[in-house]
């Protein structure tokens, strides 16, 4: 009888001990997410207000849904005031975008972690080498280390050619949630969410024969640059993973208001001397129709001139249209993109 009592007692003791020994705070892994899904959620917050101690906004897919008021913040947080029902501070934004600890609708106000948690603990994330950072990881700073006092966290998107970082962040009271290229000091450490699924890792699309930005297209959206001057000006092109720019061939200068021989000057080399004489000798009835009208009505002259130059901000197929003839005022911009 006594033995019978002793066995259950030992089992109970062992169970109790095992419960005590189990990592009571070990959380279940967060739901799986891809890096693309994280960036999608980050994009959807841009434009909403900064709201200290909160995290929630409305979205329509990857876009913000401003049918919910973006809210506004004024003052210097934490002694700041907020109006509206949506917005986030930096840690509220990061937790929502990472969907930790559990999946939650973005519009539900929730703020489960602070920068102290992100910087000083590894709950649903782990610290990684900053050199290994990838899109949808985060950079976190805590003033004074751990536990420290105050801090900041940003969602990393990509690095630029100089080593600056493209980030999504709930930046501060006056800024709200923004997407920007910024410097990040060495005091920030990199962390990675747990339970990430594989996906393409987008980076800046460059002319290299690869689909860098993961949009399914190779070498698309490449910025072109101009080379050559005058009529020889051409735009660079990307072909076979190589970007080249070849200026056009110069031709003899003629009197047409254009730099035909591509030496940087319009109608130079005496190109207009003979033409000027010809014009002086012409009578209105001998001129082309438009010029005849202009000779009769000076206002029409302006209209013809505008028709030639076009509006300053006109675009043709995405190429910036510049003034062709010397315009008065303005900057006489010569290059196009």
């Amino acid at each position: 009888m006594r033995r019978a009592i002793m066995i259950p007692a030992a089992l109970a003791l062992m169970l109790s001990a095992s419960v005590l020994l189990l990592p009571a705070s070990a959380p279940a892994a967060p739901a799986e997410m891809s890096r693309d899904e994280i960036i999608c959620l980050a994009q959807s917050g841009v434009g909403f207000s900064y709201w200290w101690g909160h995290g929630g906004w409305c979205h329509d897919g990857c876009a913000p849904d401003f049918s919910c008021s973006a809210g506004s913040c004024s003052g210097s947080c934490p002694d700041c005031s907020h109006s509206g029902s949506y917005g986030a501070d930096c840690s509220g934004f990061a937790a929502k975008v990472w969907q930790v600890p559990d999946p939650i609708d973005l519009s539900n106000d929730d703020h489960p972690y602070s920068t102290e948690d992100f910087r000083c603990s590894e709950i649903h994330w782990t610290q990684i080498d900053k050199g290994d950072i990838q899109i949808a990881d985060a950079l976190v700073y805590r003033s004074g280390g751990c536990p420290g006092s105050g801090g900041h966290i940003v969602i990393y998107e990509s690095g630029d050619p100089w080593g600056s970082s493209w980030t999504y962040e709930a930046r501060g009271c006056s800024y709200g949630i923004v997407h920007n290229s910024r410097t990040v000091s060495s005091e920030y450490i990199a962390i990675r969410r747990s339970s990430l699924t594989a996906s393409c890792v987008p980076s800046l699309e460059v002319c290299d024969g690869d689909d860098d930005d993961c949009d399914g297209l190779v070498d698309d959206d490449i910025d072109s640059y101009a080379c050559g001057t005058g009529e020889c000006e051409r735009l660079s092109a990307c072909a076979g993973g190589v970007e080249t720019c070849v200026p056009g061939d110069p031709r003899p200068e003629i009197c047409d208001g254009v730099d035909n021989d591509c030496d940087g000057a319009d109608d130079d080399d005496g190109a207009c001397v003979q033409d000027d004489q010809d014009v002086q000798e012409l009578q209105p009835e001998e001129m082309p129709d438009e010029a005849q009208d202009a000779a009769v009505d000076p206002a029409l002259d302006d209209a013809v001139q505008q028709d030639v130059t076009g509006p300053p901000d006109a675009q043709v197929d995405g190429i910036f249209q510049q003034p062709v003839l010397g315009m008065e005022g303005g900057c006489g911009c010569a290059l196009t993109r």
Partner: peptide, 10 residues
């Protein structure tokens, strides 16, 4: 200078 209590230190 702004210390960045859950926002960007600047």
């Amino acid at each position: 200078r702004h210390e960045g209590g859950e926002s960007a230190p600047v």
